[in-house]
Design a protein around this nucleic acid. Structure first.
Lengths: 219, 219
DNA sequence: TTATATAATTAGACAAGACTAATTTTATAA
DNA sequence: TTATAAAATTAGTCTTGTCTAATTATATAA
């Protein structure tokens, strides 16, 4: 598989995981940074390879084997992201782009040894779970900040958006992985959420942001 | 620069370093694993970019800036090779192909942090010197086994050929980096060389092989 | 039900990098 | 000096992945 095909498959997987089922052409094009016409071409090609279910003009989804392929690419991407931050000390906001190039190196030996070297990690630096060599995702029960009730306390465990602008905003707010937060109020008007970081700060985030931050409820 | 352009530039550099000056089309084609017609196309393109000196039908060499580019690619290649063997414990005979993919990721941040992580190494796993961030090569005085005189003792410090078949042969003979050898006789007939590994073994290698193994004379 | 905005697709073009087949150059040997 | 083998180049084709512009489908609102 070419690097481009792999990137498309990966974006289809994450798009669907974010609730866009079936996936649509214009959305895929946006995710990979191309025009819809290019996405249509690639969707046709991936369909011929048996990786997508595609109904012309009605979107597409991954087949069983397409999903397995996607999980392998995501595995590589997340392992490299972790290596870049943990070992090479590269800023977590910058590793996504580099990992996008590294993910295309499709060698089981390389990836499995990298995984062992990193100590069989479960989470990447953005809090996303890393599929194992068989494509199995570790189960974690977590929700979005947006799902929390007022006064409910939780711990930040990950983010749905790996773009550097979003991550810079998160960093500025101090909402890093492991930080404990509490919802202090819900704004009825536009569904924004006010949250507090224990004794440190308190601020309002939009609904969209609250849906992009994963948390686990404190015991 | 595309990955293909980078691979061509790297091969031109190493070809010239092995004494092929000027470099010729058929040789470059062989080094990159393509047909001569493809090499001609690429040579024209690289010439337009100011990286090669090219006289039609008379070969080519690197310009000043072409050499700087080549050293950066070689730097990346060798740093990755070292990472793959040292850290990921991948067999040294297999790392060349993987490093060929990794070398195309052209990020100073990535490469410089990788270099720091590896502890600013001087040699890659095949004994080749690693250029620094400015493209300077550490000076080492070393020669080929073929240059040694009878009874002269020396230590293996590297290899000119990174192909897995050659490296497997080297491994079989026990001529790994750091091993002390002695030339026991020179075969006049075909310029083969008989060498001994102290008390361990003794065998004959061809002239070609003797020219591919670097040694440093023992003090 | 019809008009319309949005999304999707098609057709055709282009750049990169590779190939084959044919031709031209160069160097060498007779 | 001429014939010839080896090397290099050219011309034309193919695949991948992208694009623009034009056309067609779909869903929604009047």
């Amino acid at each position: 598989m070419t690097a481009a095909e792999q990137e498309y498959i990966k974006q289809i997987y994450t798009g669907i995981a974010d609730g866009h089922l079936p996936m649509q052409t214009y959305m895929l094009a946006e995710l990979v940074g191309a025009k819809p016409a290019s996405a249509t071409d690639m969707v046709k090609k991936l369909t011929l390879k048996g990786l997508l279910n595609y109904r012309k003009n009605h979107g597409f989804s991954l087949t069983e084997s397409g999903e397995q392929v996607a999980l392998q690419i995501i595995r590589r991407h997340r392992l490299w992201e972790l290596f870049l931050t943990e070992n090479l000390k590269i800023d977590w906001k910058q590793v996504h782009a580099m990992a996008n190039e590294l993910q295309s190196i499709n060698s089981d030996l390389l990836v499995n040894n990298l995984e062992a070297y990193l100590g069989y990690p479960v989470y990447d630096p953005h809090g996303e779970v890393i599929p194992d060599a068989k494509g199995h995702l570790p189960q974690t029960e977590r929700m979005e900040i947006y799902d929390l009730k007022v006064n409910q306390g939780a711990t930040v465990t990950g983010f749905r958006d790996s773009g550097s602008a979003f991550l810079a905003y998160i960093e500025k707010l101090g909402l890093l992985i492991g930080v404990r937060i509490q919802v202090t109020s819900l704004i009825e008007y536009n569904h924004s959420v006010e949250i507090a970081i224990s004794q440190v700060s308190s601020f309002i985030i939009t609904k969209e942001t609250a849906q992009k931050i994963y948390v686990t409820i404190n015991e």
